[in-house]
Design a binder for these strands. Structure first.
Length: 847
RNA sequence: GCGGGCGUGGCGAAAUUGGCAUACGCGGCAGGUUUAGGUCCUGUUGGUGGAAACACUGUGGGGGUUCGAGUCCCCCCGCCCGCACCA
């Protein structure tokens, strides 16, 4: 082909035309439906992309995440697996509500409109979803099962209501779970969170703390290390001891938790959280006013201020004394805000010599400092630096002379023997606060009856459907908008029949996403949240793709739900996601895209400029999936060029072999083709397969590019476009490329099959490249006749030899020593040693 | 502060178990096609020296282990992330 013809061809690769043509045809073909037929013996593969929140149209971040997930899904389809690759929408949540308030509309309208927009964009983006399983968490058919699960949790004592300190977002006017407070701020809106005392619903995730921690070990190597690390830190297991301190004038002892029971003899004072009921209870009457004033001052602080380690310690003496159980020493009881009311027991024994915070406090208020572990470091009382390391116990009665570890064991047994304490474990993890004072969520299926108390809504009355409240005031006022729906709120008690009221809070939307991957397995099932045998067939998820922002939120909750369901006997596994990939962020110019920076990149515009395939390919080729992509460094036009090259290869082959049978369908053989190109093709197939399975998708694309170059060369200056090897390469290219650029691949496939009709006769080419088979590398074509052996002298490459792969060590040594480059480099030096690693390397050590 | 991760050409990035550093792409340079530009095609491209052969040098810095280190170990510098008064 001449260059002029090439130029003409170049103009004929039109990504937009191809895109429109195939989008319409694919819609009719329903290519990616997962089979629930028990007779279907194909191996199954369950792949889930974290479902989107319908906050508008898809953006660049979605484009990356779904390009990765889709490539992997298509790979397993082509490998002949029965693939479940579903899609749904995480459709409840605050933004819908806020938008509705802003536009004076209804959250449902905004939500469903956005879902339709995103669904259309997904179709254009050529995602290989099984659309028949589509779900929306805001549908009553879905959230009904949130309610059902809530009631099962309730029966098992895993859902309960309690009063206490909660995180309150003043902007969103609702409570938040600990996991939704990021650096003291609301995860959604960034407002500083304040503490409030409220009665709220909780899920008892702390009961599963140990299992969540232990099972994380199973995920090692399958989940990103940092996610596992973040989960471990979040759960925050501490081992130590509980110690019971008598307090003068109080019948019950006060228990503290400490990780350093060995330092018990060094406790010189006692601190309770200022804002705990305990402080108020212990306070001597003459100190009451002082405590109240202090607590008032503490309450004014935001969490961020309160938790600043820079701040000077504050506190007040409560006028009472605690008794150290091991030496009967009277130590003063103080109230301070550096002790938190909801960690441990809200009270500590203070050992200033060996705890920096206690030391800071002691120095501020002139309290004694007593060293009980001699570490060799200077006296903390003087330096102001507490010594936390190991050492020898002193001033500690029976512990004297012991090491830290021995002392801990000894004191634990002493305490246990005398009923004064015991070894104990504490977690940083708190129970999951699930109630929210907002409208657009799942109503909590509980009725409050003046005489019966909390009464679960009977199962047959589910779902408790959200009242429409169209036109009502949905603005946040600190109580759920549902409270205003009097017709809905006022009900009869299911137990006694008397007048009662519905719970007006809604569930945290993380409840919705904690189990949706199970719902996908039987999305229309209406006798339970999922059909057990379907879940057993598909779950757990083989590959889960999503952002790292859910490292502890969604992923921890899902793991928790799975374990509860396992205990309920409805699932037979303990971890929902076998493998997890966190895709990186798409940024622009070194920073996250944002409106205020004005550096947003619009996905629709990029697609209009370059086409879906080029955008998908840009995302994949940019970097390994987990790395961030800076769009400013990207060149989608280079991908258009590459796709054009692939397309031209297919065109050239189609034109040259118009009368040749379509080999992929068994109509011919590639065996007569050019051997060199065949080897390159099979090598590429082997490499691409390996790279895809290892999730090195960027490298897989690089290998495809190499194959394209080799094929082009074969067409232009080698075997020619009519050679069977060229056809073989073109077909393999089309199939492999379909993971990343489905439209172009499909067009190439059609060109190569010479426009055969969509319904294939037996043995005819497949209707779609998506139904083709992943090419198999022929081992016979992977063996090389010769290998390049590098010959080094003192570690520097001095010559190269072409040798048979099976060469022996002795033969290779001899060849290497005789190589001209070696003679030159040796230049009279004596050979001292020869390291031979056949067939690829020889290193001659000479002096 | 504690914990974790990462530093490779001008740029995005490759590199089984320690074994040819920089695959692939962008950008640059040169050439071909073209009236021209673009498209397309070919070649070239870490640095220094050299006409070339080739030599030296080179994976943040310093040290170590090894015949051999981007890869393993120690120290330092820089960047990123998580947690941050959790007893």
């Amino acid at each position: 082909m001449t260059a002029a013809e090439n130029a003409d061809e170049a103009q004929r690769y039109d990504p937009r035309e191809i895109q429109d043509k195939w989008q319409a045809r694919w819609a009719e073909l329903d290519l990616f439906r997962a089979s629930d037929d028990p007779a279907d013996t194909r191996e199954r593969y369950y792949l889930v992309d974290m479902f989107p929140y319908p906050s508008g149209d898809l953006h660049m971040g979605h484009a990356e995440a779904y390009a990765i997930g889709d490539a992997m899904a298509r790979y397993w389809f082509l490998r002949g697996r029965n693939v479940l690759h579903p899609i749904g929408w995480d459709a409840f949540g605050l933004p819908a509500e806020n938008a509705a308030i802003r536009n004076n509309s209804h959250p449902a309208d905004w939500t469903y409109a956005n879902i339709e927009t995103q669904a259309a964009s997904f179709r254009r983006y050529a995602t290989s979803f099984d659309w028949s399983r589509r779900l929306h968490t805001c549908d009553p058919e879905y959230y009904r099962w949130n309610q059902w699960l809530f009631l099962r949790f309730y029966e098992r004592g895993l859902a309960y209501r309690k009063g206490g300190y909660v995180n309150w977002c003043p902007f969103d006017q609702t409570v938040l779970a600990n996991e939704q407070v990021i650096g003291g701020r609301c995860e959604r809106c960034g407002t500083e969170v304040v503490r409030r005392v409220l009665t709220q619903w909780y899920f008892k995730i702390t009961e599963y703390a140990d299992r969540l921690l232990a099972d994380a070990a199973e995920l090692e190597g399958k989940w990103p290390d940092r996610v596992l690390l973040m989960q471990r830190n979040w759960i925050g297991r501490s081992t130590g001891a509980s110690v019971h301190f008598a307090v003068e004038g109080r019948d019950e002892p006060v228990t503290v938790f400490t990780t350093r029971p060995d330092t018990l003899y060094g406790a010189t004072f006692f601190v309770v959280a200022a804002d705990s009921p305990l402080a108020s209870e212990l306070c001597a009457p003459d100190r009451r006013a002082e405590l109240d004033a202090y607590v008032e001052q503490v309450r004014k602080l935001t969490d961020i201020e309160r938790q600043s380690t820079e701040r000077e310690k504050t506190g007040v003496f409560l006028g009472v004394y605690a008794i150290n159980p091991v030496n009967d020493e009277r130590i003063p009881v103080w109230a301070a805000d550096y002790v938190l009311p909801d960690y441990g027991t809200g009270a500590i024994m203070a050992v200033p010599a060996h705890d920096q915070r206690d030391l800071d406090f002691a120095r501020r208020f002139g309290l004694p400092v007593r060293v009980v572990v001699e570490t060799g470091a200077p006296d903390p009382a003087e330096t102001g630096v507490a010594t936390a390391g190991d050492g020898v116990l002193v001033n500690s009665g029976p512990l004297d002379g012991l090491s830290k570890a021995d002392a801990i064991a000894r004191i634990n047994s002493i305490l246990a023997g005398r009923g004064l304490g015991e070894a104990a474990v504490t977690y940083r993890l708190r129970d999951w606060l699930v109630s929210r004072q907002r409208f657009w969520g799942t109503p909590i299926p509980i009725i409050h009856c003046p005489s019966c108390g909390e009464v679960p809504v009977p199962e047959e009355s589910l779902p408790v459907v959200l009242p429409d409240l169209r036109g009502a005031d949905l603005a946040p006022h600190g109580v759920s908008p549902l409270a205003a729906a009097t017709d809905w709120v006022n009900v009869f008690c299911p137990k006694c029949g008397g007048p009662a009221k519905r719970d007006t809070d809604t569930m945290d939307t993380f409840v919705d996403s904690a189990w949706y991957i199970l719902r996908y397995c039987s999305p229309r099932y209406d006798e339970g949240p999922f059909r057990t045998e379907d879940v057993r067939r598909w779950a757990p998820v083989d590959l889960y793709v999503g952002g790292v922002e859910h490292a502890i939120l969604h992923l921890l909750y899902s793991r928790f739900f799975t374990k509860v369901l396992q205990d309920m006997g409805t699932v037979d596994f303990s971890e929902p996601f076998t493998r997890l990939i966190n895709q990186g962020q798409v940024i622009n110019g070194g920073r996250a895209m944002s409106k205020s920076l004005g550096n947003g990149v619009d996905l629709g515009q990029q697609i209009a400029l370059f086409g879906v395939d080029a955008i998908r390919l840009t995302m994949i080729f940019a970097s390994p999936p987990e790395d961030d992509i800076d769009w400013a460094d990207m060149h989608p036009e280079a991908m258009v060029k590459f796709l054009g090259r692939v397309w031209r290869i297919a065109s050239d082959v189609a034109a040259a072999s118009a009368h040749q049978p379509f080999a992929a369908a068994g109509g011919g053989s590639f065996a007569d083709g050019d051997t060199e190109l065949r080897k390159i093709t099979h090598h590429a197939v082997d490499e691409v397969t390996r790279q895809v399975e290892g999730y090195h998708l960027n490298v897989a694309v690089a290998r495809l590019m190499e194959l394209v170059s080799a094929t082009r060369k074969a067409i232009d200056s080698g075997a020619g476009a009519g050679d069977p090897a060229v056809r073989e390469a073109a077909e393999a290219l089309a199939v492999m490329l379909s993971l990343f650029a489905p439209y172009t691949a499909e067009e190439c496939w059609e060109l190569l099959s010479r426009g055969k009709p969509a319904q294939p006769a037996p043995g005819a080419p497949a209707v779609s490249v998506a139904k083709a088979a992943w090419p198999a590398a022929d081992p016979a074509l992977l063996v090389q006749e010769t290998v390049t052996c590098v010959v080094q002298v003192n570690g520097k490459v001095r010559d190269r030899l072409e040798v048979p792969p099976a060469i022996t060590e002795d033969e290779l040594r001899e060849l290497a020593l005789a190589a001209p480059g070696v003679a030159r480099a040796l230049a009279g030096q004596a050979v001292q040693r020869v390291i031979v690693r056949p067939p690829k390397l020889v290193n001659i050590v000479a002096v």
